[in-house]
Design a protein around this nucleic acid. Structure first.
Length: 873
RNA sequence: GGGCUCGUAGCUCAGUUGGUUAGAGCGCUACGUUGACAUCGUAGAGGUCUGCAGUUCGAGUCUGCACGAGCCCACCA
């Protein structure tokens, strides 16, 4: 029994206790669930949060959605696994630790040395990891902690090494030279999607290499022109057509260059002079042109953004300094034609904002285009595209299917090596020019291990199967153990911003390793913006700490606010008032439960909640049929990932049907114990995936077993009992309404004059209810039509006229009725016009036309009643 | 340049294949608080669904254009 004194639900007091109970039960682990033999599996692998991060509101939304899904499927009786893990986030973590060490001791990672530095990183990781895990639990997440993983733990290391070696043997991983985004400060390459663009003012210089060269070129970076090998023009540009294919020897600021004139569709005739100096070693597009035209590649800039040796006075200078000198030189020689201010986008490192230097470098790549025998002679890209195309993987919302395919189709080879220390090591060994790929060094001396680490997306790309025991659980092409039980997973739930970054990589990796999809569905939630619709960020300080929200309103209120009123893929705004109303709702549910549990008999509490009791009265049958319908709607909505609809239905039933009507009637009509208990228990089960703590707390007050493993109710096929409860509702509402408008004293008498054969018996049977349902009237009389009524206020509903007898504010009543009559006349006119329209009557479905006719008739009847009432005033 | 989302009540948002008089919560107004709940109840006011044009018997919903807000991708030599 609930403590009588607890009028208000106290989340803080109950949440930790309940979570402990769940954890100790062992039911987070699907191996401990009591399942039927043919139970399906339902698996979600948690998108691993960054170990350095604290939980933010976006995580909370993710956890709320995933926990909802997992709890629902567990209640339905499926073999449900939610597998937790954390991400080592190589670059982010290393950067945080570097900053920390620098602040504490003024040392850089190079001062410490690799081994000592990594020791520091691991110390940090072990400290911070606990925070995010603890906060994850606070959200009520029902994850199987016995299967907890980390992207950089021993088992994942094994998986990554195996994957790399296998991919290398298949020729998917290769070592090659190409332009990479190089951050001179981090001393690391960045993936294309780690590069950010910043708008800046820059100078665009227009000049010729030397006097004998026929074409002027424009550039913002004259210093790179030391490595030019060609000038590219658009093939359609008439100005330059005669030059295409010709070669010129030029002397550019003391550097001898051989420049060929080529054509390329990437060149825009309108920009600058319409001619582009091609610098293959320091620009991605230029590099592609050089490869296509088999041009040499000349490096000018080194890893520290300084000019390389062999460029005379320029060597050793920073790019900015070299630019100044070259500009001066061009001016001196009279080659400079124009200097103009333009705004362009500067590529900068997403971590440290340092301008990116595109450099040619030896890196490891994954080929997305290599055809693989094991994939039926298709490439990873083709398999991923096919999965989306054939809907083997479904996207929610659907529009992301197209975004995904567009992005995938344009995907280039993926650079996977990173020049940082914290991360997965490459199983690669060098001896001079020899390269060996394998778990340990080959025979012989002088083999040196590759110093790079892998892009973190390499290990997170393997996340769905590395967490389930691959490669140990994959023997001779057959899945065993957890991998067989839980892969492919059912849904990947994540933010749309990493659709391309992560989702695409998981799909490719899974195809390579297992030749199957990693998940059946991708559910993408939107971003939570701040109150003003801006993105939350540390720098703006507009973030919301979920732990503070939980402290103030409870976890359930936070979860419910994140689950309701939002649609997949669309951003929503954080609004504290919304959380407050959810807290109020939870308290309402608490009090509904308190009322029911406090008023029913002990033995009714022990009845089997799966058996639906028989209804005796109009209200009983109504609420039971509403409950039956609720079960079917909520189940359907949850199956379709429509959480908000499901919660709306539940909210409407709980507050507007159960609390406002049925419980009020239960105070009047007695002997409803078994129905009340049945309603409450099933309602708690239905609500549990949304608000697990409060529902379990209530459940625990009367049950030995756990709500989290109760049985989800089934809706019977019985048709909705078409009863007349809505007439009772209408009459009561009309009386309340009229009473409120005319300020009728509670003590005054009510007379209802009824015509229409059904309603008379009905209202007679509901006399007590009408009187006591907050109509504020002490007496009620029901008459046949024809009785004489004085001083009456009229309400008209359905087929019933109600006269409330008492003192009337005649002017006010007249005004109200006149207004209503005017409205009705307008509607009648509209309706008549519509029905006179031959097109409508001739072409609209008959059911619609009939409905319109009936509507017109109803309006006319009501208007007649109102005009009669007006006359009697 | 290519693509996407959004514009509905004062605010935050729903609106599920086009079909009754477009909904909810908060806020506002009036009244109330009777033993589950003041984190409460009853009722009310408040909308030319951004604009224009089109398709249709019928458009918040579909199409085109315009305006406004925001996001993503590519390029920026």
């Amino acid at each position: 029994m609930l403590n009588e004194l607890e009028k208000i639900y106290n989340p803080i007091e109950n949440e930790d206790k309940i979570y402990k109970k769940w954890e100790e039960s062992g039911f987070f682990n699907p191996d401990n669930l009591k399942l039927s033999k043919d139970a399906k599996s339902y698996t979600i692998i948690l998108p691993p949060p960054n170990i350095t991060a604290k939980l933010h509101i976006g995580h909370s939304a993710m956890l709320a959605i995933e926990d909802l899904l997992v709890r629902y499927h567990r209640l339905v009786g499926e073999r449900t696994l939610w597998l937790p893990g954390t991400d080592h986030a190589a670059i982010a973590t290393q950067s945080v630790v570097e900053k920390k060490i620098l602040a504490e001791s003024g040392k850089t990672r190079h001062d410490l040395g690799r081994a000592k530095f990594l020791e520091e990183v691991w110390k940090f990781v072990n400290e911070t990891q606990a925070t995010i895990l603890h906060q994850t639990k606070k959200m009520g997440s029902s994850m199987d902690w016995s299967r907890l993983t980390f992207t950089l733990d021993e088992q994942r290391r094994k998986a990554v090494q195996a994957m790399f070696i296998d991919m290398y043997r298949e020729g998917v991983i290769y070592r090659g030279e190409r332009i990479v985004n190089w951050c001179p400060r981090c001393h690391s390459t960045l993936a294309d999607d780690e590069v950010e663009y910043k708008e800046q003012k820059a100078k665009l210089y227009t000049f010729k290499y030397d006097k004998n060269f026929p074409i002027s070129i424009s550039t913002t970076r004259p210093e790179t022109k030391l490595g030019d090998v060609a000038v590219a023009v658009n093939s359609k540009d008439k100005r330059y057509q005669e030059y295409i294919g010709k070669e010129y020897n030029v002397n550019f600021c003391g550097q001898k260059l051989l420049i060929r004139i080529i054509s390329d569709y990437n060149v825009e005739s309108e920009f600058g002079t319409g001619a582009l100096g091609v610098t293959p070693a320091h620009s991605m597009v230029d590099w592609q042109m050089a490869i296509a035209n088999q041009l040499p590649i000349i490096k000018v800039i080194d890893e520290d953004a300084l000019i390389k040796d062999g460029y005379g006075a320029y060597s050793g200078l920073s790019v900015d300094k070299a630019r100044e000198m070259i500009v001066a030189e061009l001016n001196k020689k009279g080659l400079m034609e124009k200097e103009e201010e333009i705004t362009n986008n500067l590529s900068v490192c997403y971590r440290c904002n340092t301008p990116i230097e595109p450099l040619l470098s030896k890196q490891w790549f994954i080929s997305v285009d290599k055809k693989l025998e094991r994939l039926g002679n298709k490439s990873l890209k083709e398999k991923a595209l096919e999965a989306a195309e054939k809907r083997d993987i479904e996207f929610l919302p659907e529009r992301f299917n197209k975004s995904f395919k567009d992005w995938m189709a344009n995907l280039h080879d993926w650079c996977i090596s990173r020049q940082i220390w914290f991360g997965h090591e490459l199983p690669v060994w060098y001896k001079g020019e020899d390269v060996y790929v394998g778990e340990s060094a080959p025979q012989g001396v002088d083999w040196i291990k590759d110093q790079d680490t892998l892009d973190t997306w390499f290990s997170s790309g393997m996340w769905t199967f590395s967490t389930l025991g691959w490669p140990d659980n994959f023997k001779n092409g057959v899945k065993i153990g957890d991998l067989a039980k839980f892969h492919p997973t059912q849904v990947l739930e994540t933010g749309y911003e990493i659709l391309t970054l992560w989702v695409s990589r998981m799909i490719m990796m899974s195809f390579f390793a297992l030749n199957e999809i990693p998940f059946e569905k991708v559910y993408l939630h939107g971003t939570i913006l701040d109150k003003n619709g801006k993105k939350m960020s540390k720098s703006k300080g507009n973030g919301v700490d979920p732990m503070e929200v939980i402290e103030k309103y409870g976890t359930d209120a936070l979860r419910l606010s994140l689950l309701m009123g939002s649609t997949p893929g669309n951003d929503s705004r954080y609004n504290e008032e919304v959380i407050e109303t959810k807290r109020n709702f939870i308290n309402k549910l608490w009090n509904i439960s308190r009322f029911i549990l406090g008023s029913v008999s002990e033995e009714s509490l022990n009845q089997d909640y799966k058996i639906c009791p028989d209804g005796k009265t109009l209200a009983d049958n109504w609420i039971l049929s509403e409950m039956n319908e609720l079960v079917s709607k909520v189940s359907k909505n949850l199956d379709n990932y429509e959480f908000s609809f499901a919660a709306d239905e539940l909210n409407d039933f709980t507050w507007n049907k159960l609390a406002d009507w049925y419980l009020e009637i239960a105070k009047i009509e007695k002997d409803k114990d078994s129905i009340l208990v049945y309603l409450l228990k099933n309602l708690l089960i239905l609500w549990h995936p949304f608000i697990p703590y409060v529902t379990e707390t209530i459940w625990q007050s009367t049950n030995q077993d756990l709500l989290m493993v109760a049985s989800w109710p089934k809706s019977s096929n019985a048709k909705k009992n078409a009863n007349n409860f809505n007439i009772l509702q209408e009459v009561v509402t009309a009386i309340r309404n009229a009473r409120s408008l005319n300020k009728i004293e509670p003590s005054q008498k009510l007379k209802a004059v009824i015509y229409g054969h059904n309603s008379l018996d009905l209202l007679n049977s509901q006399k007590e209810n009408i009187k006591n349902l907050k109509t504020g009237l002490s007496e009620i009389e029901i008459f046949e039509k024809g009785d004489k009524i004085d001083k009456a206020i009229t309400a008209v509903v359905s087929n019933i006229e109600i006269y409330l007898i008492g003192e009337i504010d005649e002017a006010k009543e007249k005004e109200r009725l006149t207004k209503e009559a005017a409205n009705l006349e307008k509607l009648i006119l509209l309706q008549e016009t519509k029905l006179n329209n031959q097109d409508f009557v001739g072409r609209a479905p008959e059911s619609i036309v009939n409905a319109e006719k009936e509507k017109l008739a109803n309006y006319k009847t009501e208007l007649l009643k109102i005009s009669n009432s007006l006359k009697s005033l």
